[in-house]
Write a protein that binds this DNA or RNA. Structure first.
Length: 458
RNA sequence: GGCUCCGUAGCCAAGUGGCUAAGGCAGCGGAUUGCAAAUCCGCCAUCGUCGGUUCGACUCCGACCGGAGCCUCCA
């Protein structure tokens, strides 16, 4: 379930600036978001409630909080009273006194600085809904509490989100929900690290260069604008840094992005850029070569194999042999341990080695003994299951190049390879090597394998 | 200033109070190959610095240095 906050100050301001309506802008942003997710292969969102479609739910939630004495109306606004919430700040280890809170024009309408708005009185020209406190709109945090309650109930298993939302958003969600329901909102809170743009120089290794305000004594002097600018340079999020992300999305296979994201623990920040993505793409080649090899040996496309679920996998591993079973166990244990995808991927690389060795040792490219072929199939089915868990290698990579002449190119290559094979048979290696060298220069790699010569574009 | 988190090989990145500190990229040596490519085998780190706790720390504590995020405006 993914909540869509389609009404807030930012959207109101932005839609006014663009001369469009809030609803339209929100719809556009949501569509854009879903499109990016789809490209990355993120599917399976069951529910996507919108704040504007749950105003009644939200109002009822706020009324409940007022009735219990956790919130108060004030001149058309409604605020959450943090002093009535004994454990306010527990998620981020913050005490009410240390929380500076929302200031600005609303400050004098609040009892304490840390109180936050549940309902905001509409200003002229702003979108508004009728409420017991007059026309207005929901505050930022309340929609998530109200909608999760409506769809998941007062308590659910996992609440996720970016590390940048921990405070105040999630902290305030907890305050609202737990004050009303008197039970824990979520059993687990999972926060993912943020993506950072790799340094401007494209340097992967180097830490992003400190911005102007990095000297601690100068920090106090830095204007808010400078701080925002410095932030935008390192943190990719929201609208500020989304552009470079979209560019990269266009240039790289979505699965390379997945691979990069999965290669580190979800809680760690990640350097995102051309070079890291290139390295991830390279790392995937070993898998893709194995899958191509498997297809040559078995005639079966790895990408067409069914992704088994865990139960089916449990029942079927034995056929793949002891090594495969051990690796699968390790993979599953790693994933069960707070999604340790780095280790899960490491076992996958081990798996590649095991399968390659198996093909080597039994010379499966030359002959096809029934028993070994069955084991090979079983191994690949396990790999299919595990890579499927990570959403990796779901589709066959498109060969680079291609185009309208692809059929002709294939025919020509066939011819060239045949001529070269004859030369090799005649021990005319000078000619054979010349052909290969020239092809390499043209971006085509030849591989002389036991079962024939293959070619691919580099 | 307050609250979090991080600092592991050339680079990316797991992990652990004592057992050979995963895996990938790059590099090097070997097997294989007519030569290559691919594949396989092997090599390549004492874990930011300084102290402390401990029989023993990279793993715990403290300080320091370096880096990231949040708190300050708005959500």
């Amino acid at each position: 379930m993914v909540n869509i906050t389609d009404v807030d100050d930012k959207i109101i301001v932005e839609s006014a600036a663009r001369g469009t309506t809030m609803a339209k802008l929100a719809a556009e942003m949501t569509a854009d978001y879903l499109e990016n997710l789809a490209v990355l292969g993120v599917t399976g969102i069951d529910r996507m409630p919108k704040a504007t479609e749950h105003i009644g739910t939200i109002i009822a939630f706020i009324e409940g909080l007022i009735a219990k004495g956790h919130a108060y109306a004030s001149d058309g606004d409604v605020y959450f009273d943090v002093t009535k919430d004994a454990d306010y700040g527990k998620l981020t280890n913050r005490s009410v006194e240390r929380t500076q809170g929302e200031g600005g024009s609303t400050a004098e309408r609040k009892r304490s600085a840390a109180d936050f708005a549940l309902w905001k009185k509409a200003k002229p020209g702003e979108p508004e809904w009728e409420s017991p406190w007059g026309p207005g709109r929901p505050g930022w945090h309340i929609e998530c509490s109200a909608m999760s309650k409506a769809l998941l109930g007062p308590h659910f298993d996992i609440h996720g989100g970016g590390l940048d939302l921990v405070f105040p958003h999630h902290e305030n969600e907890i305050a609202q929900s737990e004050s009303l329901h008197d039970c824990p909102m979520a059993t687990f809170w999972m926060h993912n690290g943020l993506m950072q743009a790799a340094g401007a120089a494209g340097k992967v290794g180097g830490r992003p260069r400190g911005e102007a305000g990095s000297a601690e004594d100068a920090a106090a002097q830095v204007s808010a604008a400078d701080q925002a600018a410095a932030q935008a340079a390192t943190k990719i999020s929201k609208s500020t840094g989304a552009e470079p992300f979209k560019n990269l999305l266009g240039r790289h296979r979505p699965e390379a992005i997945r691979m990069l994201l999965l290669s580190t623990h979800y809680r760690s920040p990640i350097q995102f850029g051309e070079e890291p993505l290139g390295e991830s793409a390279r790392a995937m080649e070993a898998f893709e070569r194995l899958f191509a090899r498997y297809e040559r040996v078995s005639g079966t496309s790895f990408y067409a194999l069914p992704c088994r679920n865990r139960r089916e996998g449990d029942a079927a591993v034995a056929a793949a042999g002891a090594e495969a079973k051990a690796l699968r166990d390790k993979f599953l244990a790693a994933m069960d341990d707070d999604f340790n995808t780095a280790i899960a991927i490491a076992t996958l690389f081990d798996f590649v080695r095991v399968v390659n060795k198996f093909i080597d040792q039994h010379s499966l490219e030359a002959k096809k003994p029934v028993a070994e072929m069955a084991t090979l199939d079983a191994m690949l089915l396990v790999m299919r299951e595990l890579t499927g868990v990570l959403g990796l290698f779901l589709t066959e990579p498109k060969a680079p190049g291609g185009g309208a002449d692809e059929g002709l190119v294939a025919k020509l290559m066939e011819l060239v390879i045949e001529i070269r094979a004859n030369a090799r048979k005649a021990k005319d290696f000078a000619t054979a090597d010349l052909v290969r060298t020239k092809l390499t220069e043209a971006g085509i790699v030849l591989e002389d394998r036991p079962d024939g010569t293959g070619w691919s574009r580099k």
